[in-house]
Amino acid sequence: MNKRGRFRWGRIVWGVLALLLLSGHVAWANAIEPPSAIESVRYMHIMEGFLPPMWAAIWFVVAIPFWIMGFRRINQLVAQKPEIRLLLGVSGAFAFVLSALKIPSVTGSSSHPTGTGLGAILFGPSVMSVLGGVVLLFQALLLAHGGLTTLGANTVSMAIIGPLVAWLIWIGMKGKAPMWLGVFLAAAMANLMTYVVTSLQLALAYPDPAGGFVASFVKFGTVFAVTQIPLAISEGILTVLIFNALRSSATNELQALGMQGA
């Protein structure tokens, strides 16, 4: 084979690889009208059918108590203030739409925030477990991202652990550190934990035949780290900016949500 032939093969291989990685992006970019804030959404959702039945069931069992707790909390809030029912509904839609927002990633390409950090700071982690669950169900049925049998696993990573971590950091750092630092760490860590928990879930379901769970966790962790770590930083910065804008222009609304110190 001459030099030119080899060159062509190289190009074909790279082309196929790039197509594979970008398939999600391309599919949506074509489907939607010209320059748009909404684009392909690439998060860390475990796809439908990727978890074996046993693990799918286990993650549902883990998620259900949190759903019940969150639902009780929502019932309580609605009993106290009936108008919160509509606010929560519209806020769920806000969480969905926020995850379609296009933000520049540190590495250059554009990406999307998970919104779990901001949601946890604004609404609290127990409410987020229910709203997040509904948003995940809708993402499965409206965007074909995530799945029905993997809803439990995705809820645990995106709607339970992520918001819980964000909320703990936010509460723990309030008054002890500058507010921007608390917001940044809460949002960035929530995003990062979502990805760590998803890698953990994949590693538990598919341990490495030689190295076991740990090797598998490292493997899935590295595979997804490339896209996820810059994204966590971007989301942290974005959330700080959003939060600052809200504090200067939406003080009354924040206080109505019961945000202390806003």
Binding site: G24, M47, F50, A215
Partner: peptide, 19 residues
Amino acid sequence: LAEGSFLALAAAGVALGVS
């Protein structure tokens, strides 16, 4: 194929072993 990138990465994670 909307989730092609997830599928490609996750499948690579299963097919390859690290030690």
